[in-house]
Design a protein around this nucleic acid. Structure first.
Lengths: 294, 294
DNA sequence: TGAGAAATACTCGATCTGAGAACAACAGGT
DNA sequence: ACCTGTTGTTCTCAGATCGAGTATTTCTCA
């Protein structure tokens, strides 16, 4: 960054190069993959595009960065607030981090557009409001979405889901008039979503961020459900319980217990709060992933 | 991304918004943190700025993205090739990955500039050539550099131009004559470098990328030296050796042994090649890092 | 030729992990 | 109320892994 177009011309040309208008036009946007847990399923916030291109298609919420007026993180936070209609207070409980930037030529048919993608983990949020240029916005189960699912090959780098994972996906991806499920996403958003899921799966391993999907007070089984849903595989209840309580700073007891036992029986679970750890040590690793080689 | 500025105006305004000239001017660059190992020390490629702003300051190599003509990864690869003067063949042995994007307002005094930072791991490369707008370019030991050093706090979460980044502007880090060591970096490059080092340290844990710093054939002690230099701490030779050989796909034996023993004595070490693993399983974790909390 | 250093192999005890069992608490239906 | 099946939580046990320390052998250097 921070260099004139190229070539150490003379001073005049040098300064002239600073005229913004002389740069090839390029637009910068932020897109956000907002993940939340609804009724035990991982959902992503999608908006239906009101105009071309990809009119009628579902896409990730996002918008243009106000060049010079806001930073990237700020722009993402602003878009997140606008799109979810959440108060600043509620937003404080949402985890937001940069995912990566996408700028393949032609990804937007209108003009060169580079998008900085963000990833957000949110507790169960109210239904979104269709604001701005979106025809409507809604939570969509990730399962069955292109780019969704448990195993999305591609992953730039680390971890890719294993081929032999138990795939609880429903074998009924019908999309008659159902909302966004099983729809192609606009632009390269399927790729962004896939990368986001890979990142989310990895994050659960070494951070306590799974708690960001839950209410301030939660039980170990609820926490386990988050891991199972995002990783797409069942975990050993006993071992998971032992692990969570043994990692320093992961959770702290409230002394209370849940109001009711499980919906299908069982004793009432104890309640915990998120601890003060930012990183899990030792990490909570995903079961047997033989990959690595390839 | 991919939405008009905001607000569901009427169709006319909608279409008008597509004129590139109507968007606030913003420039997009790529900056690359190229790391290599020279004489046992971790070095980063820096260029001396030939013109303002930050004239005479050292900065990360980089340049403007050719909007619409190349993707982000392409642009980074191109800049890397230009700046190092390496052949396409030699570049194939270099690991290049996206680090994150930085777009704090005012990070470039000229105009809004967002930079997509990349991270590269390279084996010992020849001296760089000062091309383009750079007065000169050279490898600089990371130690002693602002943003360098072993302990750069900040970071549990990589990337993102956070608001509280050290802002090197305002001060006048004029160049006297000394190379780059102990100099303030231009723009927010100290922050980018710090983030890059954090990422590099983490990458060594779960990927075999340490081998990217070495020749095609290397010994276990040489590999250990890479880890020790980047992590900034001595490792137990015996345990490291056992671990490296036990992780499937990390290294594979060539059957040969090094020409000479260690410079200060000791038997000749066996030679290995990088294996076919992309991920280390189980990971090679850094010794005792009590952090996690706070 | 001797001393010191380093590569590699081994040992031992502390930890961590996966799998399974045990037991009590609880929901739902009879 | 009383079964019956489910589930939260705790334990046990064997195998894998890890940190630390030791032993052995092979080099370099003086």
């Amino acid at each position: 960054m921070s260099r004139q177009p190229a070539r150490p011309d003379d001073e005049a040309a040098f300064l002239a190069a600073y005229d913004p208008r002389d740069f090839p036009a390029i637009a910068l946007t932020v897109d956000i993959v907002v993940l939340t847990m609804r009724e035990g399923r991982l959902n992503v916030l999608l908006v239906e595009r009101a105009g071309p291109p990809f009119q009628g298609c579902w896409a990730l919420p996002g918008g243009f960065v106000k060049a010079g007026q806001e930073g990237l993180d700020e722009a993402a936070a602003r878009e997140l607030a606008e799109e979810t209609g959440l108060s600043a207070g509620a937003l404080r409980r949402v985890h937001l981090e940069q995912l990566g930037s996408y700028g393949a030529p032609g990804r937007d048919p209108r003009m060169p557009v580079v998008s900085v993608a963000y990833l957000a983990f949110a507790p169960d949020l109210p239904d979104p409001r269709a604001g701005g240029d979106a025809a409507r916005a809604q939570w969509t189960p990730v399962v069955g979405l292109h780019g969704g699912g448990t195993g999305d090959r591609h992953a730039t780098d680390r971890h890719s889901a294993d081929p032999h994972s138990t795939d609880p996906r429903s074998t009924d991806p019908r999309s008659t008039d159902r909302p966004a499920t099983d729809r192609e996403l606009a632009f390269d958003h399927a790729q962004i979503l896939a990368d986001a899921l890979d990142r989310a799966r990895a994050k659960l391993e070494y951070t306590p961020l799974a708690t960001a999907f839950l209410a301030p007070e939660f039980t170990v089984p609820e926490l386990r459900a988050v891991y199972e849903e995002i990783w797409g595989e069942k975990l050993h209840p006993g071992n998971f319980h032992r692990k969570v309580l043994s990692v320093p700073g992961f959770v702290e007891s409230t002394g209370e217990t849940a109001e009711r036992g499980g919906s299908r029986g069982g004793p009432r679970a104890r309640l915990y709060r998120a601890g003060d750890a930012r990183l899990l040590h030792p990490a909570l690793l995903r079961p047997d992933r033989e990959e690595g080689v390839r």
